[in-house]
Simulated scan of single mutants.
Amino acid sequence: MPDAVAFPNVRELTQLQIDAVDRWHREPIDNPFDGIQSLVCQQHEFNYRLWHEEDKARSPSASDTEIATVKRAIDKLNQARNDMIEKIDDALTEALCKAGVPESTGPINTETAGSAIDRLSIMSLRLYHYREQADRADADDTHRGKVQQRIDLCAQQHADLSHSLQQLLDDIVAGRKQHRTYRQMKMYNDPTLNPAIYAAKK
Rank of each mutant, 00 (worst) to 15 (best):
A68R: 14
K201D: 05
R180A: 12
D75C: 06
E86L: 07
V5K: 03
F33N: 13
H143I: 11
A57Q: 12
S38F: 04
A174C: 01
S121Q: 06
F33P: 09
V173I: 14
E132A: 15
L77K: 06
T69M: 09
L169H: 04
S38T: 07
A159T: 10
A6H: 05
S61M: 08
R183G: 08
A199H: 11
Q133A: 13
P28W: 07
H52D: 02
V70R: 10
H44M: 02
P8N: 03
C97R: 13
V10L: 07
A57R: 13
R26F: 08
S38W: 03
A134N: 07
D190G: 00
L77G: 02
D171L: 00
S38Q: 14
Y188A: 06
D30T: 15
L120R: 07
V21F: 08
L153H: 09
R126A: 12
E53A: 15
I67G: 02
P28S: 12
A134H: 09
Y48N: 07
A91T: 03
A134G: 06
T69V: 10
M84L: 15
A73E: 10
V101A: 03
Q148C: 00
K87T: 06
A80E: 10
L16C: 04
A199K: 13
T93C: 08
E54S: 13
A57W: 03
A95T: 09
M187N: 05
A196Q: 09
D135T: 10
M123T: 08
I117K: 09
L168T: 04
S61K: 14
V173T: 12
H25R: 13
A159Y: 00
H52R: 15
K201M: 06
L50M: 13
S61C: 03
Q166R: 06
N78R: 12
A6C: 02
A174I: 00
A91M: 05
I108A: 11
A155I: 00
A95K: 03
L120D: 04
L165P: 04
L13S: 05
H158K: 08
S124K: 03
K98W: 01
H129D: 09
Q17I: 06
Q157F: 01
Q156P: 00
E94N: 14
G145D: 09
I74A: 05
H25W: 07
R180Y: 00
D3A: 15
E94D: 15
L193T: 06
T65G: 15
C97D: 13
C154F: 06
Y130T: 03
D64N: 11
Q37E: 13
L127F: 02
M187Y: 06
K201V: 08
Q79W: 10
E12D: 14
A200L: 05
K98N: 14
P102C: 03
H179K: 04
S104Q: 01
E103M: 10
A200R: 06
Y130C: 00
S115R: 14
A199G: 04
V147I: 15
S164E: 14
I151A: 01
F46G: 05
G106Y: 00
I108P: 01
W51I: 03
G114A: 07
I151E: 02
G175F: 00
C41I: 02
A174W: 01
A6N: 11
I197F: 07
